[in-house]
Simulated scan of single mutants.
Amino acid sequence: MKSDLRPRYRCPDSHVKRAADELDRYVESAVVEFFSDHVRAAAAMYGDDKAAREAAELARELRQQLDAEILELTNANISASTRARMAEQMEQSLQPKIEAAEARARQVGNPVLQKFADGDTKAVWDSLDILDRREVVRECLKVTILRVKVRNPRRVFDPDTVEIVPKKIISIESDWWKTD
């Protein structure tokens, strides 16, 4: 009989085990999907910290205010140069406040998770070392390897034998998580 020497994850009593490379790829796809969903990603990045949620909401409101004021300017009956000067003044006034609120929201959250805030989820995941990847999975997902119901003699990876669920479920008590 041929022995399978691939690295494996196994429970201490060897009740269940899975090929590490296949399980890693499956969990990686779950992480990418998790951070592609704005609401779940925000929950992971800002967690249950009320101050971080409030700062993120303030940044969102200030951005909306700036957008509304610039839109109002575009409809105003004024010269283009005056419109540009007024828009620049509005932006100079609100942009530092927006950036400060966003910085406060990021300071409270986990720095590794913050990397997912501004970028391609897959690229961010690929840039992380193994310790940071483990931290992301530990913070955001609960991975459970289930026993197989039917023996699999070919040892083909079956995603139905792995349960992956988000750890942080956000309560929707405000509109901070909505995007425009």
Rank of each mutant, 00 (worst) to 15 (best):
M1C: 13
S3I: 15
D4R: 09
R6A: 15
P7D: 13
P7K: 11
R8N: 12
R8H: 14
Y9N: 12
R10S: 15
R10K: 14
C11Q: 04
D13I: 09
V16H: 12
R18I: 13
R18K: 13
R18G: 04
R18V: 14
A20S: 12
D21Q: 13
L23S: 09
D24Y: 07
D24W: 08
R25S: 13
S29Y: 10
V32L: 05
E33Y: 11
F34M: 11
F34E: 10
F34P: 02
S36M: 04
S36Y: 00
H38P: 01
H38D: 06
A41H: 01
A42Y: 01
A44P: 02
A44G: 07
G47T: 06
D48P: 00
D49R: 09
K50W: 05
A51N: 14
A52E: 06
E54W: 02
A56R: 12
A56P: 04
E57Y: 11
E57L: 13
R63H: 12
L66W: 04
A68L: 13
I70F: 08
I70M: 13
E72I: 06
L73Y: 08
S79A: 13
S79V: 05
A84Y: 05
R85W: 12
R85L: 14
M86Q: 15
M86C: 11
E88L: 10
E88W: 04
S93W: 07
P96H: 04
P96Y: 02
A100E: 11
E102T: 01
E102I: 00
E102R: 04
E102G: 01
R104D: 07
R104I: 05
R104A: 08
A105Q: 00
R106C: 02
R106P: 00
Q107M: 06
V108E: 01
G109E: 01
G109M: 01
N110V: 01
L113H: 00
K115M: 00
K115G: 01
G119F: 00
A123P: 00
V124R: 00
D126R: 09
S127D: 01
D129I: 02
I130S: 14
L131A: 14
L131K: 12
R133K: 10
R134V: 04
R134F: 04
V136W: 01
R138E: 11
E139I: 00
E139M: 09
L141N: 06
K142S: 15
T144M: 05
I145V: 15
R147G: 15
V150D: 10
N152A: 06
N152S: 05
R154L: 13
R155S: 12
D158Y: 03
D160Y: 07
T161L: 10
E163S: 14
V165Q: 09
K167R: 15
K168S: 08
K168N: 10
I172S: 08
I172H: 09
I172Y: 09
E173Y: 06
E173W: 07
S174L: 02
W177T: 03
W177C: 03
W177R: 02
K178V: 08
D180Q: 11
